[in-house]
C-alpha cells in the first residue's frame, strides 16, 4: 500500500477545475481510486453529477480514456470495452504488451446511486455475473442530485427530497435504503467493500485490492453532498467520518467471501449526531420526529450487530 507521500507524488489523473460543487464527496473518491491503479486505466461513467461536472467542453478532468454512454449502462459499456481488450490481447493485436498482470490495463466504471442502485442495477448485475474484469465504483450521495435531489433507493429513511418531501402527509422518505453492497456480495464477486473519502488510506487500500483481482469487483463509497443534504460544504469530510462513527456507513470488505470490518469506532455515536448536521433531516428534530430517529437507530444497530457477528467469517 502506498504511503501518503507516495500517493501525493503520483500523477493526478482527475484534475481540478471541474464543476462539481464545493464540498462534493465525488472528486476525492475518483482521485484516490484512479491513483490506486498501478497500470493504465480506462473509465466509464454513468449519467450523473460526475459526468456532467467533469467534462464540459472544452475541458475535461480525466487524464485517462473516459467514456459516458447513458444513465443505465456504465457497467454494460465497461463490459464491452473490457471484452474487446481481452480479445485484442488474445489475438496479439495490442500495440503494447503489458509488462505484467499487475501493470495491465484496468477497467473502472463510476456511477452515482441513481445510476447504480436503480436504473443501472440490471446492467451492473449482468456484468458482475458474466465476470468481467472490472471495478465498479458507486459514489453514494443518497439521491438524484444532478436532476434536483429526487429520492433514490439509496436515500436513507426519513430524508426529505423533492420527491419525498417532508410535510404533514409523509415525514420524508418512508422506505429503508437498499443495501446494494450485500446484493453485490450475493453475486459472489471476489471483492466487495464499503469505503468513505475521509479515510483515504482505507479507500486507497480497498481500491488497490479490487484492482489487483482479475474479476468483477465493487466499491460502494459514501459521498457527502452539501446541495442535497443541505449541509455545509466545509462539513463534508466530517460528515463522511460521522457516517462511519455512527455505523450508518460501516467500513468493511468481503474479500474472497470473507467479511472483515475495516473500522470499529471506539465509541459508537448516536445517529442524531450525523442527522442534525443535515437539513434534509431537520424535520426529524421537530415534535414527532423522535420515533423516526429511533427507527433509524434501531436499523443501524441491527445491521451493525449483524456485521459484528459475521466479522472474520466466510459468508459465501
Amino acid at each position: 500500500m502506498a504511503t501518503l507521500k507516495e500517493l501525493a507524488g503520483q500523477e493526478e489523473l482527475f484534475s481540478g477545475g471541474h464543476r462539481l460543487c464545493a464540498g462534493c464527496g465525488i472528486p476525492p473518491i475518483v482521485r484516490l481510486v484512479l491513483r490506486s491503479a498501478k497500470g493504465p486505466v480506462v473509465a466509464t461513467t454513468a449519467t450523473g453529477c460526475l459526468e456532467v461536472g467533469s467534462t464540459i467542453y472544452p475541458y475535461t478532468s480525466w487524464k485517462v480514456p473516459w467514456m459516458h454512454s447513458a444513465f443505465e449502462n456504465a457497467a454494460a459499456t465497461i463490459s464491452g470495452i473490457e471484452s474487446a481488450y481481452k480479445a485484442l490481447k488474445r489475438k496479439g493485436r495490442l500495440p503494447v504488451k503489458p509488462v505484467s498482470d499487475d501493470k495491465d490495463t484496468k477497467f473502472i466504471a463510476f456511477g452515482g446511486d441513481g445510476g447504480t442502485y436503480d436504473i443501472g442495477l440490471q446492467a451492473l448485475s449482468g456484468a458482475m455475473e458474466r465476470g468481467h474484469n472490472f471495478l465498479y465504483v458507486c459514489y453514494d450521495n443518497g439521491a438524484y442530485m444532478n436532476t434536483g435531489i429526487q429520492r433514490s433507493s439509496a436515500t436513507p429513511l426519513g430524508s426529505a427530497t423533492t420527491t419525498s418531501p417532508a410535510g404533514s402527509v409523509i415525514p420524508g422518505k418512508e422506505e429503508y435504503r437498499k443495501d446494494i453492497t450485500r446484493i453485490m456480495v450475493a453475486h459472489r464477486s471476489p471483492y466487495v467493500a464499503q469505503a468513505s473519502p475521509h479515510n483515504w488510506k482505507d479507500l486507497e487500500k480497498k481500491a488497490a485490492r479490487a484492482l489487483e483481482i482479475n474479476g468483477p469487483t465493487f466499491l460502494n463509497v459514501m459521498s457527502p453532498c452539501p446541495l442535497g443534504w443541505y449541509s455545509k460544504p466545509e462539513d463534508s469530510i466530517a460528515l463522511a467520518k460521522l457516517s462511519t462513527d455512527t455505523c450508518f456507513w460501516p467500513l468493511y470488505e468481503v474479500d474472497e467471501g470473507v467479511l472483515k470490518i475495516s473500522y470499529k469506532p471506539k465509541e459508537k455515536k448516536p445517529i442524531g449526531d450525523w442527522l442534525k448536521l443535515q437539513g434534509r433531516f431537520k424535520h426529524l428534530f421537530k415534535p414527532g420526529g423522535e420515533e423516526i430517529i429511533e427507527k433509524i437507530q434501531l436499523d443501524i444497530d441491527t445491521n451493525w450487530e449483524r456485521l459484528l457477528d459475521m466479522d472474520g467469517k466466510l459468508i459465501f
Partner: peptide, 20 residues
C-alpha cells in the same frame, strides 16, 4: 415516474399534491 430534466417538476409537484 423517474427523475429526468426538463420534466422533473411535474413529478415533484405531484409528489406533493397527490398524497394530499
Amino acid at each position: 415516474g423517474y427523475p429526468i430534466t426538463p420534466s422533473t417538476e411535474i413529478a415533484e409537484t405531484l409528489s406533493r399534491e397527490l398524497p394530499k
